[in-house]
Design a protein around this nucleic acid. Structure first.
Length: 835
RNA sequence: GCCCGGGUGGCGGAAUGGCAGACGCGGCGGAUUCAAAAUCCGCUGUCCGAAAGGGCGUGUGGGUUCGACUCCCACCCCGGGCACCA
C-alpha cells in the first residue's frame, strides 16, 4: 500500500499538471492575435514541418526554441503572431499510397493529427485558428492562381531542357535536389534527359537576391551558401570568328561566342572548347574528325551525371578535336576547337576560350593534347606551380603588357566593345527553377493543352472558375510509381477555355517547395477568400521577426521563399516594399542519435513521446535548452534529463505552497543576507533577460540552477528566510523560467497567487540601482599569477587598492624583498604587481 | 584545393583581454534511514606535499601585452559548405 499518502499531493507530478495547462492554453485566447491588435507585433515562426507523425527529438528541439520566444515576447507585452502549418504534400505520403493502394489524403491527415497532438504535449502554443495545410484546396487555389499569374507575366515558361531525372522517384528534380549526381531523397543516380518542362524565372531576380542578402540578420554561413549558389561572375562575352581552311576569318559566318572572366589573358588563348551539346558542333566539325566527334558525343550523352562531374579519369579521354578552327580576335591567329565533357551547355555560352597559362584545367588539357601554353601574366619569382591564376603584370600581350589584372581586364573589354566584337557580361550560376514534378500528391498545375493550338504554344490556363483544380479521389496507384493522373480519363480530358474544343489537362504537379515559398504570408491572414492575404495584414506582421529552422534549408527553401516574396510584391499581392520575408534567421543545430552506441541505461532509445509520458515535457524542454548553445549540433545522449528533472523537483519543493521544505519565515527589517538575495534576484532578472535575447539558453538554465542553489542555502541558514525577500525571489524565478518550462511554473504560480496565470503576467524588470554589489573580491597578482584575494569595497580607490596589494603577506612573500618594478591597478577587480 | 565553424577536466559545456573549469552529469565522502531509494550537505583539473603551499595546465609552435582560452602569425586535427561554372 501507499505509505506516503500525504506526500503524494506535494510531489511534483508532471503527468497530473501538464495536460491541464495544455488544455487551458488550447481553449484560451492568450496566443491568438487579432489583425487589428494595437500592440507592437512580433512574428515568430518555426519552419513549416512535413507531417511525418509524432514529433521526433529534432522537431522538439526546434519547436522548444520557438515556443520559448513566443511565450517570452507575449510576457513582454507584444502581440505575438505564432502560427503553425503543415507542408503536407510530398513523396512519403505518395509512396505509402503506392504501397497500400489507398489515397494519400487520409494518410496525411492522420500524420498531421499525430504531429499536432505531439507538439501540444511538448507544451508548444500556437494561434490554432491560423493553421494551414498545403493540401487544403483553399491553399491550392492560391498556388494555382499565382501559377497562372506567373505564366501571364512570363515568370513561368515551358521549354525543352536537359533535366535531372530520378528513376527511383519517377520524376524530374531541381538542380538543388541533386547532390553529387544523386537524388537528394532516394540517393538514386540521376540521369540526364531532354524533356519539356515548366520553369520559373528566378534568375530574373538573381542580382536582387544577391544584393539584399547583405542587410539580413542571418548566420553568415547561410549567406555565404546563398552567395555561392547564386554564383555571380563578371567577365566578357565575345565572338571568335570561324576560320576557313587557310586560317582566315569567314566574315559571312556568325562567330563562336565565348564567355570568360579573364579577358585580360586573351592573348594566351591557344585553343577553344565547346560543350558536346553545343548546337554548332556539326558546323565546326570537319569530315575527317566527324566519326571521332560523333563517338565522343554519344559517349558523353550516355554518361551519367556522376561520371561527368567526376574529376576522375584521364583527361585524354574527356575531349576530342573537331578539326575546326576559330580566330583569336586579339592577335588574329587561328586556334583549334575541341569538345570537352566538362564544358557545360547550361553556363555562359557553352563555349570557352582556353588559356592554359592562367587556368589549371586548360593547362592539363593543353598538356594532354600537345597544345601551346603561353603565359600572359608574370608569376612571382618563387612561383612553382603550373597555371598561374594570381595577379601580376601582363606579358606576351602586346598593348596590355605591364598592366595589372583589373586594369588589363577593363582595357580588354573596352577594346572589344569599341570594335563591336563583344561586351562586358555578368553571369550567374543560379539557374531557373524547375517548377513541376511528375507526381500525384502535389498541387496540380492548372494548365490545359488545347488540341487546336490555342494560347501561347497551345497552352491555355484553366479558367478561374475551375480553380482550385484538385486531383480526383478515384485513382489507382501504379507500382511503377507513375502518377495515376496519367491514366485518369476523367481528369485528363477537358475542353479548351478559348475555343471550346477538346483539350487535355496538365498532369504535372508543383514542386512542394512552392507550398513553403509563401505560407508565412498566408499566416498573416488565412481567412481571406478574395485575396491570398490582405496587403494590410502582411504589412502589419511581415517580415517575420524571427525565423527558426534547420541548416538543411539554407539554400533551397530560403531562396525560393525570398524569390516568391519579391515576385508577389511585384505582382501587387504583397506590399511593394516587402522585399525580404525573414528579417532574422536562426538555424539550430541537429540532434544526432547515437554518436556512440545506443543503450537503454542512458535512456537514449526513448522517443520524446515516451519520455514525456514518464517524466513530463518540462524536463525534456529544460534538458534541450541546457545541453548546448542552440546553434550547435547535439548528441541525444548528452541531454542531462535526470539532472533537469531533479532540478525541477528542487524548484517544486521550494515554491509549492504545501511543501514542507520551508517551515517558517521572518518578517520585519531585512538583514544583510536578505539584501544579498534581493540583489541576486535583480541580477538574475537582468542576466536571464539578456540571455533570452541572445539565444544563450544553456547559460540561462545554469543561472536558474545557480540561483536555486543559493536560495536553498538561504532558506536553510540559521536565521531562516525573510518572507517578502523569499517571495520576490521565488516569483521572479518562476516568471523567468516560465517561457522555458511553461507547465510547472504555471502550476506553482497559480498555487501561490490564487489561480493567476503566470503567462499573462508581464515580464519582470530589474531595478538598476539594486544590480550593483557593495563589496567584491579583488584579485592580487604577481606577474599575472593570482597570489592572493581580498574583499574590498566596490568604490575602492586605485591608491588604496595598490597599498592593500603591497601589504599582502603572500604578495610580499612572492616579491621576496625586491621592490616592484611596476604596479597595474584595475580597482576594484585586480592589482597586478610586476616584479 | 577554397570558404566557414570548432579543438578547454572522466563527460556535456562556462568564461570576448583581468580569479580558467560557472552550471549539469559522473565519482568520492557525510547526514537522514533498521536498510535502501529519494532527499539534503560537502569535496572533486593534474602533479609534488602530512599540511601550508607550490609546479603544470584551454590542439601545437611562435608573437603582442603588466596580464592571453580570448588578439596576431604559422601549423596540426575534427565538423560543415563549395568545388570542372570558364
Amino acid at each position: 500500500m501507499d505509505d506516503y499518502p500525504e506526500h503524494e499531493a506535494r510531489r511534483y507530478n508532471p503527468a497530473a499538471i501538464e495536460p491541464k495547462w495544455q488544455q487551458r492554453w488550447l481553449d484560451g485566447d492568450l496566443y491568438q492575435v487579432e489583425n487589428d491588435d494595437p500592440r507592437d507585433t512580433r512574428y515568430v515562426l518555426s519552419m513549416y514541418p512535413y507531417p511525418s507523425g509524432p514529433a521526433h527529438i529534432g522537431h522538439v528541439r526546434n519547436y522548444t526554441f520557438g515556443d520559448l520566444l513566443v511565450r517570452y515576447h507575449t510576457m513582454q507585452g507584444k502581440a505575438v503572431l505564432s502560427p503553425i502549418g503543415f507542408d503536407s504534400f510530398g513523396l512519403p505520403a505518395e509512396n505509402a499510397a503506392i504501397k497500400s493502394g489507398e489515397h494519400p489524403r487520409p494518410f496525411t491527415d492522420a500524420r498531421i493529427e499525430e504531429l499536432t497532438t505531439s507538439l501540444r504535449r511538448m507544451g508548444a502554443v500556437y494561434d490554432n485558428r491560423r493553421t494551414i495545410k498545403s493540401h487544403d484546396p483553399s491553399y491550392m487555389y492560391w498556388n494555382q492562381k499565382f501559377f497562372i499569374d506567373f505564366w501571364n507575366n512570363d515568370l513561368i515558361y515551358r521549354t525543352t531542357a536537359p533535366v535531372n531525372w530520378c528513376p527511383g522517384c519517377q520524376t524530374v528534380l531541381a538542380n538543388e535536389q541533386v547532390v553529387d549526381g544523386r537524388c537528394e531523397r532516394s540517393d538514386d543516380p540521376v540521369e540526364r534527359r531532354d524533356l519539356e518542362q515548366w520553369f520559373c524565372r528566378i534568375t530574373n531576380y538573381a542580382q536582387e537576391l544577391l544584393d539584399e542578402l547583405d542587410d539580413l540578420e542571418w548566420p553568415d554561413r547561410v549567406k555565404v551558401m546563398q552567395r555561392n549558389w547564386i554564383g555571380r561572375s563578371e567577365g566578357a562575352e565575345f565572338g571568335l570568328p570561324i576560320a576557313d581552311t587557310d586560317g582566315n576569318p569567314q566574315t559571312d559566318v556568325e562567330p563562336l561566342t565565348v564567355y570568360t572572366t579573364r579577358p585580360d589573358t586573351s592573348f594566351g588563348m591557344t585553343f577553344a572548347v565547346m560543350s558536346p551539346e553545343h548546337p554548332r558542333v556539326d558546323e565546326l566539325t570537319t569530315d575527317e574528325q566527324r566519326p571521332l566527334v560523333e563517338a565522343f558525343r554519344q559517349e558523353v550523352a550516355n554518361k551519367s551525371e556522376i561520371d561527368r562531374l567526376s574529376t576522375e579519369g584521364a583527361i585524354e579521354k574527356r575531349g576530342v578535336f573537331t578539326g575546326g578552327r576559330v580566330i583569336n580576335p586579339f592577335n588574329n591567329k587561328p586556334i583549334p576547337v575541341y569538345l570537352a565533357d566538362y564544358v557545360l551547355m547550361t553556363y555562359g555560352t557553352g563555349a570557352i576560350m582556353a588559356v592554359p597559362g592562367e587556368d589549371q584545367r586548360d593547362w592539363d588539357f593543353a598538356e594532354a593534347y600537345g597544345l601551346d601554353i603561353i603565359r600572359t601574366v608574370q608569376p612571382p619569382d618563387d612561383f612553382e606551380g603550373e597555371a598561374y591564376t594570381g595577379d601580376g603584370p601582363a606579358i606576351n600581350s602586346e598593348w596590355l603588357n605591364g598592366l595589372e589584372m583589373a586594369e588589363a581586364k577593363a582595357k580588354a573589354i573596352e577594346w572589344l566593345e569599341k570594335r563591336d566584337l563583344g561586351e562586358a557580361k555578368v553571369n550567374y550560376r543560379l539557374r531557373d527553377w524547375l517548377f513541376a514534378r511528375q507526381r500525384f500528391w502535389g498541387c496540380p498545375i492548372p494548365m490545359i493543352y488545347c488540341d487546336a493550338g490555342c494560347g501561347r504554344h497551345g497552352i491555355v490556363p484553366a479558367p478561374e472558375s475551375d480553380l482550385p483544380i484538385v486531383a480526383p479521389d478515384d485513382v489507382e496507384f501504379q507500382p511503377s510509381g507513375e502518377s495515376p493522373l496519367l491514366h485518369h480519363e476523367g481528369f485528363l480530358n477537358t475542353t479548351c477555355p478559348e475555343c471550346g474544343g477538346p483539350a487535355k489537362r496538365e498532369t504535372d504537379t508543383m514542386d512542394t517547395f512552392v507550398d513553403s515559398a509563401w505560407y508565412f504570408l498566408r499566416f498573416c491572414d488565412p481567412w481571406s477568400d478574395e485575396v491570398p492575404f490582405a496587403t494590410a495584414a502582411a504589412e502589419k506582421f511581415m517580415p517575420v521577426d524571427q525565423y527558426i529552422g534547420g541548416i538543411e534549408h539554407a539554400i533551397l527553401h530560403l531562396m525560393y521563399a525570398r524569390f516568391f516574396t519579391k515576385a508577389l510584391a511585384d505582382l501587387g499581392y504583397a506590399p511593394k516594399d516587402l522585399r525580404e520575408p525573414f528579417k532574422r534567421l536562426f538555424t539550430q543545430g541537429m540532434v544526432r542519435m547515437g554518436g556512440s552506441k545506443m543503450s537503454k541505461s542512458k535512456g537514449n532509445t526513448v522517443s520524446p513521446e515516451e519520455y514525456v509520458d514518464a517524466h513530463g515535457a518540462d524536463s525534456l524542454r529544460l534538458a534541450i535548452l541546457q545541453a548546448k548553445p542552440p546553434a550547435e549540433d547535439v548528441d541525444f545522449e548528452d541531454f542531462q534529463l535526470e539532472g533537469c528533472e531533479r532540478f525541477l523537483n528542487r524548484v517544486w519543493r521550494l515554491a509549492a505552497t504545501d511543501s514542507d521544505f520551508i517551515t517558517g519565515v521572518r518578517h520585519g527589517d531585512p538583514t544583510e543576507s536578505d539584501r544579498e538575495i534581493e540583489g541576486d534576484t535583480h541580477r538574475l532578472i537582468d542576466r536571464v533577460t539578456g540571455e533570452y535575447e541572445r539565444w544563450a539558453y544553456n547559460t540561462a538554465v545554469a543561472a536558474f540552477m545557480e540561483f536555486t542553489n543559493s536560495l536553498y542555502k538561504y532558506v536553510q541558514a540559521d536565521q531562516g528566510p525573510h518572507g517578502p525577500t523569499l517571495d520576490f525571489a521565488i516569483d521572479s524565478l518562476l516568471q523567468l523560467m516560465a517561457p522555458a518550462v511553461p507547465h510547472i511554473t504555471a502550476e506553482l504560480w497559480a498555487m501561490g497567487h490564487e489561480g493567476e496565470h503566470i503567462h499573462e503576467r508581464s515580464w519582470p524588470v530589474a531595478d538598476p540601482s539594486k544590480l550593483t554589489v557593495s563589496t567584491v573580491t579583488m584579485v592580487l597578482q604577481v606577474n599575472g599569477k593570482v597570489r592572493d584575494r581580498v574583499e574590498v569595497d566596490v568604490d575602492i580607490s586605485d591608491d588604496e587598492a595598490e597599498s592593500l596589494a603591497l601589504a599582502s603577506e603572500r604578495i610580499q612573500a612572492q616579491l621576496d624583498g625586491a621592490a616592484p618594478r611596476k604596479v597595474i591597478v584595475r580597482a576594484p577587480k585586480l592589482v597586478n604587481v610586476v616584479a
